[in-house]
């Protein structure tokens, strides 16, 4: 990890010195090892603050949205899943490729700083294991799919066993059981919108949930409004979720959001595939559900 930190610092310094970037997105450590946060270096002088350790789990591609309206040239560090986020933004025309200098780090699986903070908080009586973040156990793409420079050798995917096992479990429930399951997990939502805010695919300028005229989704925290929020958000993710798992990781009430996303990934692949979102960037390419083809299935019409 120290070697990777050194390498990232070296690259960032070079990019600033050669005037190739205006800002460099990485991580900064602010306390204990797990106290890590996204860090925006603005000059070579800032570079020494950059770290890369096993808690650098945040998907920095989401931070690019903060720069989409400017002309800053941006360097950033991405792991496999984060790099798919960049493809998402490029396909969605949110940022231009030539503004980016992408430093890829093949990932061996990260630890979850939130789980570590929770363990240290005194609020948990059952310690969560923090050997590896839960989201990383579902990883199919640890290696960056788009980069200008790659640090270190590629790694094998961490996923063991069947990819959609949990989804299939839910599919096998009766409709009533399934409804009950989702009613139970979604009724606990406190509508903090953290899942939306950390999502790279949530790149709409005005989110439908923030609109007031008309107000598409009610602001009450009850099963009806919560379901409306989650179902609408999920359907906007169909063919677009790049499986970084940040939504589920940050949820303060532990809603299994990736289960919903994975169901959509599976369905989009079955119905419109073979398709895997954000696996490669081809200029002009579009996500599965953002183009129309006469051969598209339309039995339901």
């Amino acid at each position: 990890m120290k070697e990777i930190t050194n390498k990232i610092q070296e690259i960032a310094t070079r990019l600033f010195n050669e005037d190739q970037v205006d800002v460099f997105l990485a991580w900064e450590q602010t306390g204990e090892e797990y106290r890590v946060k996204p860090y925006f270096a603005r000059s070579a002088a800032d570079v020494s603050n950059i770290v890369f350790n096993e808690y650098c789990i945040h998907n920095l591609s989401t931070s690019l949205l903060k720069f989409r309206d400017g002309s800053d040239r941006i360097g950033l560090v991405v792991k496999g899943c984060d790099s798919r986020g960049i493809v998402r933004l490029l396909e969605d025309l949110q940022i231009k490729r030539e503004r980016l200098y992408i430093v890829g780090v093949p990932c061996t699986g990260m630890k979850d700083p939130l789980a570590a903070a929770r363990n240290q908080s005194g609020f948990n009586n059952k310690m969560q294991t923090i050997d590896i973040a839960r989201k990383c156990l579902d990883c199919i793409q640890p290696n960056p799919v788009i980069y200008d420079e790659l640090i270190g050798p590629e790694n094998p995917p961490l996923l063991q066993g069947e990819r959609f096992a949990k989804v299939k479990e839910i599919e096998n429930m009766s409709a009533d059981e399934r409804y009950q399951y989702f009613e139970d997990v979604l009724s606990t939502c406190i509508r903090c919108y953290a899942c939306r805010q950390v999502c790279v695919a949530c790149d709409c300028r005005t989110c439908i949930f923030d609109e007031m005229k008309p107000q598409w989704v009610g602001r009450e925290t009850n099963v009806t409004d919560n379901m409306m929020y989650h179902i609408v958000r999920a359907s906007h993710m169909a063919g677009r979720c790049i499986e970084c798992g940040e939504c589920e990781r940050v949820c303060p009430v532990n809603i299994p959001l990736m289960l919903i996303n994975q169901k959509l990934i599976k369905d989009v692949n079955d119905l419109f595939g073979p398709y895997e979102a954000g696996m490669q960037y081809v200029e002009g390419a579009k996500p599965a559900l953002s183009r129309y083809d006469e051969k598209d299935p339309d039995d339901f019409l």
Binding site: E220, V250, P252
Partner: peptide, 24 residues
């Protein structure tokens, strides 16, 4: 800069009391 403007902090906070009044 690092803040993603979600509302977790305000909702778990024991003293954040801001509310909105709406109609259904």
């Amino acid at each position: 800069e690092p803040c993603s403007n979600c509302g977790i902090c305000t909702y778990v906070c024991p003293s954040c009391y801001c509310f909105d009044i709406q109609v259904k």
